[in-house]
């Protein structure tokens, strides 16, 4: 079962705290999975998930009665992940322009292979542009429809299909090299 009983978000919306706890319990593993795959870092992922649920709690009055909960939640979470990535980028730039170019000494992706398959996939995933990574994860890992992904990202359907296709092409090309 991937989606929660639609009555539960409506109960949470009307102030039922137990319903909110049920939502966090139900979605926490999925949200953490998405944030880890997007951010590639456990601590940032946990913070993004915590922040997303806090925003969900605050924003329940704006959740429409006829809306589906999954796209709404993932929209908030994807926004938190983008904010976290922007923050990391700024931090990385500070390091790169500082005394120690830490990123420059990090091993190239090819050199990091050799761990298990999941780790290899993650390393390759991190090389994708964020919007392609996001579209790929929402489509093929979170199993959202393109209509739902459009609601999450605000992008058009054909742009999303192109992002997923490009992500698949890039993943395939790099993973084939790993397998050789």
């Amino acid at each position: 079962m991937n989606e929660i009983d639609p009555a539960i978000p409506l109960r949470a919306r009307s102030g039922d705290e137990k319903a909110f706890i049920e939502i966090v319990e139900f979605y926490y593993p999925r949200c953490l999975r998405f944030a880890r795959n997007m951010l590639g870092n456990d601590q940032d992922a946990e913070e993004a998930v915590q922040d997303a649920f806090t925003r969900v709690y605050d924003s329940f009055p704006r959740f429409r009665e006829d809306a589906r909960f999954d796209p709404w939640l993932f929209r908030i979470l994807a926004n938190r992940c983008r904010t976290s990535m922007a923050r990391s980028r700024r931090h990385r730039q500070m390091i790169e322009y500082g005394e120690l170019p830490l990123m420059a000494v990090a091993a190239a992706p090819e050199e990091e292979f050799g761990a298990d398959w999941a780790e290899e996939v993650r390393v390759v995933l991190e090389t994708l542009p964020p919007e392609q990574r996001e579209a790929f994860l929402l489509r093929h890992v979170e199993d959202l429809s393109y209509e739902d992904i459009a609601a999450v990202t605000g992008a058009g359907l054909s742009a999303l299909r192109m992002r997923v296709k490009r992500a698949c092409d890039a993943l395939r090309a790099r993973l084939e090299k790993v397998e050789r």
């Binding site: 999975r33 880890r36 999941a118 093929h140 993943l171």
Partner: peptide, 9 residues
């Protein structure tokens, strides 16, 4: 690849 990323915490 998708299955590897789909493992739930």
């Amino acid at each position: 690849a998708a299955r590897a990323l789909a493992a739930l915490p």
